[in-house]
Design a protein around this nucleic acid. Structure first.
Length: 280
DNA sequence: TCCGGTGGGTGTAGGCTCAC
DNA sequence: GTGAGCCTACACCCACCGGA
């Protein structure tokens, strides 16, 4: 009864806490620092290290989270670092124990990261492929449209083959065209198109999550789905209607509306409608 | 002002399937 | 037969923002 009264959050119950062992540690060397681009455009530094065994796990890449963390640790290529396996799962740089001369290393921290636009990289294009690919990976993922069989590698091949250039392209893929791409065969092509056909196209708010609007996740979209019967009822809602909603729901609703009022959002909306999706 | 929830992001292992 | 890719599970960190 106490557990029921305390309830659960989106990730964990409020009535439980986990006790963790201190992480196992090992020393290794930083080979390089790469910057990865996420679906929202966020850039994350990742340290590539000389592979080291930690708790039976071979560690070769470690997220450094952001530029501030990179600066705080002051890591450069060639440095020796102590790494740990937080929670027995996530590799983490705990400290730098041996530094190379900073004169020999280039500054890996970008001076200024571009601000993420709400409708940035909705399609493939120069300077946009990595973010668009990350968007696509999210789009087909389980929390997104849940289209099985599309991983990062296959999506990249489909982009390079010119078959996928925006999010709606996925729904226009033809079995023969996929099978003609090197690396794909008849079986894979049949399975992928079968997975595409199996998508529930009537779930407006799942599609909203899948599109990957910054700040709009599964929990927020789920709350909107309880308050609006369709995406159109949300888009047509007056400010007075939104203003009586709880703060975080109001913000999510306005974020969604702003997205579909942007030029990229409007274009995407029309394309999905053309596919028979997002209709009342 | 501070706390807590949510969103966005990360890496690895292991089993499975399929292209080559 | 082999290697590559996908999927799933696991669990953490950080930024941001609403609400107390």
């Amino acid at each position: 009864d106490l557990r029921r009264r305390l309830g659960e959050g989106a990730r964990a119950p409020f009535w439980a806490a986990a006790w963790k062992f201190p992480p196992a540690t090992a020393e290794t060397e930083v080979r390089a620092i790469h910057w990865q681009v996420g679906r929202t455009g966020r850039r994350t530094p990742v340290a590539e290290v000389v592979p080291v065994l930690l708790g039976g796990v071979r560690i070769s890449r470690i997220s450094l989270h952001n530029a501030a963390e990179l600066e705080r640790l002051d890591i450069a290529e060639g440095d020796h670092v102590v790494v740990g396996l937080i929670g027995d799962v996530i590799p983490q740089v705990l400290a730098v124990v041996g530094r190379v001369s900073r004169e020999d290393t280039a500054d890996a921290v970008p001076t200024k990261l571009p601000a993420a636009a709400i409708d940035a990289c909705l399609r493939d294009g120069p300077g946009c492929t990595e973010q668009f690919l990350a968007r696509l990976v999210h789009f087909v993922s389980k929390p997104g449209m849940n289209i099985a069989g599309f991983g990062r590698g296959r999506l990249r091949m489909l982009i390079e083959a010119g078959l996928v250039h925006d999010l709606t392209s996925i729904f226009r893929l033809q079995e023969e065209a996929i099978a003609a791409v090197p690396g794909f065969g008849d079986i894979t092509a049949r399975k992928l198109t079968g997975a595409i056909r199996a998508v529930d196209r009537s779930d407006h708010f799942r599609l909203v999550v899948a599109i990957g609007i910054p700040g709009v996740g599964k929990a927020g979209a789920g709350r909107l789905a309880k308050q609006f019967t369709s995406l159109d009822t949300l888009l047509e809602a007056k400010d007075e209607q939104l203003n009586v909603m709880p703060g975080k729901d109001r913000k999510t609703a306005k974020t969604v509306r702003n997205f579909f009022q942007s030029s990229g959002g409007r274009e995407l909306l029309e394309k999905f409608r053309g596919l028979g999706m997002l209709r009342n």
